[in-house]
């Protein structure tokens, strides 16, 4: 392999990783607290989940396209891609956090109340720790999908491994497509395995 290609693979892989990490980080910072708030409000929970569901069904290329003409958040470049990736990552994290917190054995929650714990103490010491495996599973699903979706980000000039894929498609060059697809696949597999390992390590019992 020629050294120029090798160094381009490395730099685009890092760029890709960066896109994914920022998108997942921002999505987690929004979705986890939002989910916790929603566990306390059954009425609007259905609504918000429905909204996140709809967002998820918008085809990724279309979502990038919709964001482009918007003032401030739109435009060609990395930030538009990050916003789109972030929107996609919201749902799995939101849903898994909700499932994790709401899935805490009612007997355990009632016993926490009966022992005289406050609402905040129950959230931080009982509900969230018991929801950790579910939250991590949500992060894992979101990360793996985002790694794949992020290849589309090259279409709006955000860089990443999608650059190879689009270039390969344009020049009908399988080797160039593979230079993008293989590192992306490896990254997805590594993220899946790594996060699953952490999930197992942190699971109570």
């Amino acid at each position: 392999m020629n050294p120029r290609l090798a160094s381009e693979i490395v730099s685009l892989t890092l760029e890709h990783l960066w896109l994914v990490l920022i998108a997942i980080g921002v999505a987690a910072l929004i979705a986890i607290p939002a989910a916790v708030a929603l566990t306390r409000r059954a009425a609007i929970r259905r609504w918000m989940l429905g909204l996140a569901n709809i967002l998820q069904t918008v085809p990724s290329l279309a979502l990038f396209g919709f964001l482009l003409p918007l003032p401030f958040i739109g435009g060609i470049g990395r930030h538009t891609a990050i916003i789109a990736l972030c929107l996609y990552a919201l749902l799995p994290i939101l849903r898994n956090t909700l499932v994790g917190v709401l899935g805490v054995d009612p007997a355990v929650r009632e016993s926490a109340v009966a022992m005289g714990m406050t609402g905040n103490q129950i959230l931080w010491q009982v509900e969230l720790p018991l929801a950790v495996p579910a939250i991590l599973a949500g992060l894992r699903i979101a990360t793996v999908t985002t790694i794949g979706t992020a290849t589309v980000a090259a279409a709006i000039g955000a860089g990443g491994l999608g650059v190879f894929i689009f270039r390969g498609i344009a020049t009908v060059d399988t080797a160039t497509i593979l230079a993008g697809a293989v590192p992306a696949a490896i990254m997805a597999l590594a993220a899946d395995e790594g996060l699953e390992w952490i999930e197992k390590r942190l699971s109570p019992a």
């Binding site: 355990v108 009632e110 016993s111 009966a114 005289g116 406050t118 009982v126 018991l130 109570p204």
Partner: peptide
């Protein structure tokens, strides 16, 4: 206050209700 009341009452719950974690 319900919180301080509950902390002054020892409650052995049917089926224990221990924190699994």
């Amino acid at each position: 206050d319900p919180i301080s009341l509950r902390r002054r009452i020892g409650y052995v719950i049917q089926d224990a209700g221990l924190f699994p974690h």
